[in-house]
Nucleic acid binder design. Structure first.
Lengths: 194, 194
DNA sequence: GTCTATAGGAAGATAGAC
DNA sequence: GTCTATCTTCCTATAGAC
């Protein structure tokens, strides 16, 4: 397991550097040279541990996907009513202007064209939708939510609002745009108290 | 005005080729050489009409932004109740798997870092949010919508759901994911008939 | 495991001829 | 307006020494 310390072995440093660069610049915008410099590793080191850029990117994407899933589960798996858990997920702290390290990759043509690189992205967002579907269903079962809603549709809307919130925030250069979209969704989801 | 015919002048062909490549590959993933080949123009031609890649990209982005705004206005400016117009906007035909040619640019580090390139993106999404805000306000005024909703928040949620819908569709490789998110939002927006 | 050397091609232009 | 030549740096490796 990765220790997180500055002097981890080269393989670890390369993966972490790649994760950071993929988040910031995407796959197309990330070169092996930039990775090596960020990791403090030479070319020989990189090509010893990985067969090339796609191989290293795959390791980085898989780890990022796993971390995102774990972070979501920490919030969604908490105790409490369905609405509260969805609200906690939507309001959880985020590095909004950096965008979503997983969702971002969907705009990368070379990630989308490569089934192996796309798979962790697809699986992570799919898992998240499934997890939220179950929670919305809970809310319907216990009478917290009402109306004609289909759980899997609401779950998709929640994930889409978050992903689109990043787009609005980055376009405007301000995290406020993300929060506004999320508050709108929470108002629509909010159990009516007539 | 651009005639759309195959043998337009080189400047037009360069702009159209750049629009297409920016949509598909983003700014970082689009090279002058690729643009010239797609446009059937040489280097001399490109650098005669434009000072460089950023200049050409700016012309392309401005045109794409203008077209997106016009397309949205055709649907949002139609006659009818607020809900129907928002529904028409959400359900309008889209090249879902290609993503949004404007929103996509927010994931490009060099677009976001350059205020001139980012401006058309920001202005277009901001215009769209404003236009939707007015329509939601209309719906509240005439009693079509009820509840604690703030128009500008709902408008942001609508735009975010669309932008995030593209992310889900591209991740899964299927336009269905977009539609699911949109249907969830429509269910939440749907005027209750108790 | 890591380093340096080497390599063919692309990126992003500039200069000058036609 | 468009073409070709030229330039520097970067991209994405492979080979072989240490």
């Amino acid at each position: 397991m990765y220790s997180g310390c500055m002097s981890a072995n080269a393989s670890e440093r390369l993966i972490e550097a790649t994760r950071s660069l993929l988040w910031e610049r995407g796959y197309v915008g990330t070169s092996p040279k930039a990775i090596q410099q960020a990791a403090g590793a030479g070319q020989g080191s990189m090509y010893h541990h990985f067969t090339g850029k796609p191989d290293l990117a795959l390791a980085a994407i898989r780890r990022t996907a796993e971390e995102m899933r774990a972070a979501a589960e920490r919030v969604l798996g908490a105790q409490g009513p369905a609405y509260a858990r969805i609200e906690a997920y939507l309001l959880r702290e985020r590095d909004v202007l950096r965008g979503c390290p997983v969702g971002r990759l969907t705009m990368d043509p070379e990630v989308i064209a490569d089934d192996e690189l796309r798979a962790p992205v697809d699986e992570t967002l799919d898992w998240l939708r499934g997890r939220l579907t179950g929670i919305v269903q809970e809310g319907l079962d216990n009478g917290e939510f009402s109306g004609p809603m289909r759980p899997e549709e609401i779950a998709s809307t929640v994930v889409a609002t978050v992903q689109g919130g990043y787009v609005l925030a980055r376009a405007s250069g301000s995290p406020a745009a993300f929060d506004t979209a999320v508050r709108g969704l929470l108002a629509l989801l909010s159990p009516r108290t007539p």
